[in-house]
């Protein structure tokens, strides 16, 4: 069984936010509308861009850190859900059952990374956005929690394609929308269980670290630290 994971090279990331835009398109993330976005900042993303500003004046330095859901192997959100609406699948993806979620937001509160997002209002689809929605990804109603799925639909599609051509899924067959769109190729997606895959080789490298590893959540998104 695969164990899907992601490596994000912070040395390559330019903070261009192409990953955010691609994720938004790919996963049919609802828009909030101009007023809600401006007045209540009710915009949400599955892929967020964390910013850290240090230094002053001419020495100012901004670091970026793209942050999807870490799909932890020991997910605190799954533990607290009262209705089995979020679960850890055997291939290591933390899923969300939109049809069962009661919207108590306990998982959001329990997630130390704030990776889960909530549909505070009815999703808005200005113009013909709804018609252009990705048919592989279900639209979410108001009042449920949603999250990054590591583009699970792409994994299913690739697996089907591999099966049709009578071969095993290989490294590089599947990639997520964010990884695909990254102009700096900072994001690598793949199977961590496969020792030879690019992602697991990078994850074993000297620059690899996981965010708040001390919490014991076992994130499957591994960052590569910047070179000095």
């Amino acid at each position: 069984m695969a164990r899907w994971g992601m490596v994000i090279d912070l040395d390559r990331c330019t903070g261009c936010a192409a990953c955010m835009a691609a994720c938004h398109q790919e996963n049919n993330i609802a828009t909030a509308g101009p007023e809600e976005a401006r007045d209540a900042s009710r915009v949400f993303q599955w892929m967020r861009m964390l910013k850290e500003v240090s230094g002053e004046g001419a020495d100012v330095r901004v670091r970026f850190m793209p942050q999807p859901c870490f799909n932890c192997d020991n997910p605190p959100c799954v533990r607290v859900c009262p209705v089995h609406a979020t679960y850890l699948s055997p291939d290591g993806i933390v899923g969300q059952v939109y049809g069962r979620c009661i919207g108590c937001r306990y998982c959001m509160v329990a997630c130390p990374y704030g990776a889960k997002v909530f549909n505070w209002l009815d999703p808005e689809w200005p113009g013909d956005l709804k018609r252009r929605a990705n048919p592989d990804v279900s639209l979410r109603p108001r009042g449920v929690v949603e999250k990054c799925t590591f583009c699970h639909h792409r994994i299913i599609r690739a697996r089907e394609a591999a099966r049709l051509s009578g071969r095993e899924l290989e490294d590089g067959d599947v990639t997520t929308a964010c990884a695909e769109s990254c102009p700096a190729k900072a994001i690598v997606f793949g199977d961590l269980a496969e020792a030879g895959s690019r992602v697991s080789r990078l994850a074993r490298g000297p620059r690899a670290f996981r965010l708040h590893d001390d919490l014991g959540t076992e994130p499957k998104v591994i960052y590569l630290a910047e070179k000095k």
Binding site: C81, P82, V83, H84, A85, R100, C101, I102, G103, C104, R105, F118, N119, P141, R142, G143, V144, V145
Partner: peptide
């Protein structure tokens, strides 16, 4: 009152964890 989907409140009983 705090639930996003109060209509699904009974899920607590039908599929409670």
């Amino acid at each position: 009152l705090d639930l996003g989907r109060p209509d699904r409140m009974l899920n607590i009983f039908t599929s409670g964890r």
